[in-house]
């Protein structure tokens, strides 16, 4: 058993709100510099740069978990992660069909860049990603579980786009594998403020939109930096564990 460091919520330059410096290789380089073993790539409502990030990570020995930060009909942000890209892209198709057909106004919101594993721009995504899908948070939870993915309500302590802020508490039917808190709070403080997260594992992530924000916010005790081990750690099986690093900055 070994201690691994994770940051499971990182945006690439695909998210219009993220800096264009968020290329797959630059993210991996920053992750390595911060001592990270495992990162999550979760752009808004899209997974287009996940394969590039997985490839860039494989070259440097950083495990990349591919996902999508879905915006539900209630304006709640939910991280959804999958063990393989085939299922992830199947989920992406469903997310896309639940998105309104609005063209990105890149002057106002920023570019939505598609990139390869070397960080070259290969195109731009036309559909505006910072919109709510027509899917409810309960549907997202149910469907992602059906597809074998992980459901993590994002930054629940934040004043916007948060499950707790928007819907008051964790619905008893959602059954997330854990909840994510932002870098602005500690797990102790979050558990005190939000009684409905009692019994749920807590992770902390950067929600990085620029390279300097990437950091080790969660530590995981497990055998290796893999999807299977992550699942076991989330279930605290066989002495494995996952916990946020409570350095409030």
């Amino acid at each position: 058993m070994k201690l691994f460091f994770a940051d499971l919520h990182i945006h690439t330059a695909l998210s219009p709100c993220a800096e264009n410096e968020m290329t797959p290789p630059a993210i991996i380089k920053a992750a390595k510099a911060e001592g990270l073993d495992i990162i999550g790539i979760s752009d808004h409502n899209s997974a287009e740069n996940v394969v590039a990030a997985i490839e860039a990570g494989a070259a440097e020995g950083v495990t990349v978990i591919g996902g999508i930060e879905v915006q539900t009909v209630e304006d709640v942000h939910v991280l959804t992660f999958f063990p393989c890209v085939d299922t992830l892209f199947r989920w992406q198709d469903e997310v896309y069909s639940a998105l309104p057909d609005i063209e990105n106004d890149e002057k106002r919101f920023g570019e939505q860049l598609l990139m390869d594993s070397n960080g070259n721009v290969t195109g731009k995504l036309r559909t505006f990603l910072l919109a709510s899908t027509s899917m409810s948070v309960d549907y997202v939870g149910k469907r992602v579980r059906e597809l074998g993915g992980l459901v993590i309500p994002a930054h629940i302590d934040r004043p916007s786009f948060s499950l707790i802020r928007n819907l008051g508490f964790v619905p008893d039917t959602l059954l997330p594998c854990c909840v994510e808190i932002s870098k602005n709070t500690s797990s102790g403080s979050a558990k005190e403020r939000f009684s409905s997260i009692a019994g749920l594992p807590v992770i902390k992530s950067s929600d990085a939109h620029r390279l300097s924000e990437i950091s080790a916010y969660t530590e995981i005790l497990m055998e290796e930096a893999s999807w299977e081990e992550l699942l076991l750690a989330l279930a605290f099986v066989g002495g494995r564990s996952i916990r946020p690093l409570d350095i409030v900055c």
Partner: peptide, 10 residues
């Protein structure tokens, strides 16, 4: 405009 089941508990 929220229709989620949590509105009933609230």
């Amino acid at each position: 405009v929220q229709v989620h089941q949590n509105i009933i508990a609230v």
